[in-house]
Simulated assay, not measured.
Amino acid sequence: MDSAEFRKREIYRVTFVGFIANLLLTAAKFAAGILGRSGAMVADAVHSLSDMATDIVVIVFAGISAKPRDDGHDYGHGKYETLASILISLALIAVGAGILTESIRSIRSVLAGEELPRPGAIALAAAVLSIVVKELLYRYTVRAGRRLESPSVVANAWHHRSDAFSSLGTLAGIGCAYFLGDKWRIADPIAAIVVSFFIFKIAIELLRSGIGELLEKSLPADTEEEILQLVTADPAVREPHNLRTRRIGSCISIEVHIRVDGRMDVEHAHGLTVEIERRLRARFGEGTMVAIHVEPLHAPAAERR
């Protein structure tokens, strides 16, 4: 099994675990929200339902991004995975907006004299269960996403944690309404508003990263400096320049010009580039795309641009 196929299967496995957990948790939350007369818990169940949708997005796009290069995609299909992370970010923003809107509506109704219903103990239990399950899912998924260098899996992990944050706010609101009496029932929507801003923050960070990849943003300066150090590890390689870097899904692309002694034969120069490619792929992964242009050390000015 090649590395691309292994990576795809690992992404499928991690995401499928999350999908099954979300399916069971969503059903439990809906039941607890209805039986426990908790609008906040029903909203939390809708949030978990959105997690199921993003699980499906990751599964679909992981299969596409794992496809090998073809005539129409010289750099592979990795950007499909970046697109998936952007879609998940947008889903997070939509969920946060929904929670914010519903919370403001609830606060307005209380200020207008309406009384929010007292939630049942089953809603409290469901909130605690949701926090535990979603935090465990986050840790399991984000660890796998970083190991597989998958932006969409990492984005999906943060969606799990956003649900844990949402359930934490729900627990605080339900707890106040359940234990402290009628006047404290407004704590439920207030806590939900705070949670919605956490969700927005996570979503915007993920969206900024995804858009940066689609717009061919260069790798961080410290990463580029490390690349240059690897390129010039052999003293025969001099003056690296015209470095261009970008991320393509889980892989990176590196283009660089180097200078060598103009009297060096082609076979020796080729051997240097092969060794540079080996070092770069050993550091950044076998899928790293490397293009190296060789120039004579004392090339005329017009050739050194």
Rank of each mutant, 00 (worst) to 15 (best):
A221H: 13
A282W: 03
I20G: 08
M52S: 06
N242G: 09
I86D: 07
P117H: 13
I99F: 05
F284G: 01
L124M: 08
A291N: 10
K201V: 00
G76Y: 04
I34W: 14
D70N: 02
R7Y: 13
I202Y: 10
G181Q: 00
I64C: 08
I292W: 08
M52H: 09
K79S: 05
M1N: 10
V14P: 07
I211P: 09
K134T: 09
A291P: 00
A127N: 00
L137W: 13
I34L: 11
C176A: 15
P189Y: 11
V237Y: 00
I292T: 09
E225G: 08
Y80P: 06
R246G: 14
E115K: 07
A53L: 14
L25A: 00
R263Q: 15
C251F: 08
G72P: 11
H160M: 14
A43W: 04
V256P: 04
M289D: 14
E277G: 11
L228S: 10
V290S: 10
S85V: 12
A94I: 09
L297A: 05
L180G: 03
E213I: 01
I99L: 04
L100H: 15
M52L: 09
K201A: 01
G33D: 07
E239S: 04
S103D: 14
L207C: 12
S65E: 04
F198E: 11
L129Q: 00
I34N: 00
V95A: 15
L129G: 01
A282K: 03
S3N: 05
K217C: 08
G39S: 03
A233Y: 05
A94K: 13
R37Q: 06
L171E: 04
G285W: 06
H241G: 02
V42E: 10
A123T: 10
A203W: 07
